[in-house]
């Protein structure tokens, strides 16, 4: 594997559940991220998929150091990001940036596009001297496909897709090496979604970016990712190349997830085998013992309740299931 730009090891993030007004008592923990490890190679896109509550957004917050990890390490170019402070932390902000999901709340409504995209330069004045900032902002707008003359407009004068482009321009301003994309296209319409996905693709080649691409839409993730990690209740249950995950999935959850995605082809109606999971995702405050997926899994045996399956190589790539095997009918491709 090529050199890793981001190494994540045993990352844990628990949020305390508190009651009480002045003196708060902790009555439990939301185990949002519970022991996640992966590497991100330079220039690579790692897709992270999972349903709501699986911890993928918390993962993004922790990788950005917006939240402190409960334990575990994240190394960026070999340095532990949780050990950084002051100047070093500011330096890190220039290297890792984020694109957020909601194009309506991710831009301050009281700031013009010029102020929004120019803010990174105000915070890091050494990147661009004052006189050059306006020109740089206009360059960035051009790069993301917006009219540079719209620099004085406010966010509410743009459509969802255009706002997402503004968010991408802001993330690009400091020339980061890694961009965490937290559901960047899930709030957009189909036709606009394709435009933004193509833009992310082009920018990756142009600026030599590495992406952690978080999404719940498996088709979108497949389209952009080199490797994919599937998360369930705070843990990675399966990780591998795009082909391994989509064509040879071995974890029952991955298989169920893939089979549940509606395929836009009426001819396949009734001919595809769809694995119907029962019930909802259990609460992350009290996850099931052993394998967390066992409460919804059709393969569950006693061992699944007692022993947590490790994420180790099974049938060619890591999968956290005691009974990992390919399911004959769900492979797509």
């Amino acid at each position: 594997m090529p050199e890793a730009i981001l190494e994540v090891r045993d990352l844990v993030k628990h949020f305390p559940v508190q009651v009480g007004v002045l003196f708060k008592r902790t009555i439990g923990h939301v185990k949002a991220v519970d022991g996640v490890s992966f590497d991100l190679a330079r220039g690579e896109t790692l897709g992270v998929v999972g349903e709501s509550g699986c911890g993928k957004s918390t993962l993004a917050q922790v990788l950005m150091r917006l939240e402190k990890a409960t334990s575990g390490t994240v190394r960026f170019e070999g340095r532990d990001i949780f050990g950084l402070a002051g100047q070093e932390l500011r330096r890190l902000r220039r290297d890792i940036q984020i694109v957020l999901q909601d194009p309506y709340t991710s831009l301050n409504p009281r700031m013009t596009v010029g102020d929004l995209v120019g803010e990174p330069f105000e915070i890091h004045p050494d990147v661009a001297p004052k006189g050059e900032r306006r020109r740089k902002v206009q360059e960035l707008l051009d790069v993301v496909g917006l009219n540079p003359e719209h620099i004085n407009r406010y966010p509410h004068q743009f459509s969802g897709g255009q706002r997402q482009r503004i968010g991408i321009a802001r993330a690009l301003a400091l020339r980061p090496k890694v961009i965490i994309c937290d559901e960047p296209v899930s709030a957009l319409d189909v036709s606009v979604q394709a435009q933004v996905m193509n833009l992310l693709d082009t920018l990756q080649a142009e600026f030599d970016l590495s992406y952690v691409f978080i999404a719940h839409d498996l088709s979108v993730v497949r389209h952009l990712s080199d490797r994919v990690a599937v998360m369930y209740l705070g843990k990675v249950v399966e990780i591998g190349t795009d082909e391994q995950i989509y064509e040879h999935p071995t974890h029952p959850y991955t298989q169920a997830l893939l089979s549940a995605v509606p395929v836009p082809d009426p001819e396949l109606r009734g001919r595809r085998e769809v694995i119907r999971l029962t019930g909802d995702v259990p609460s992350p405050v009290n996850p099931p013992s052993g394998c967390r997926f066992r409460t919804r899994c059709w393969k569950a045996r006693d061992v699944c309740a007692q022993e947590e399956p490790a994420l180790v190589d099974r049938l060619g790539h890591p999968s956290a299931c005691h009974f990992a095997e390919e399911h004959p009918h769900v492979a797509v491709g």
Binding site: A194, D217, H223, P264
Partner: peptide, 24 residues
Amino acid sequence: IALLESLPRLDLKGQQLNTIKGLP
């Protein structure tokens, strides 16, 4: 036609998606 073409597909990994230019 454009809508169907702009859709990322689970069973196909393409490079660039066909997009509908502009906005509604």
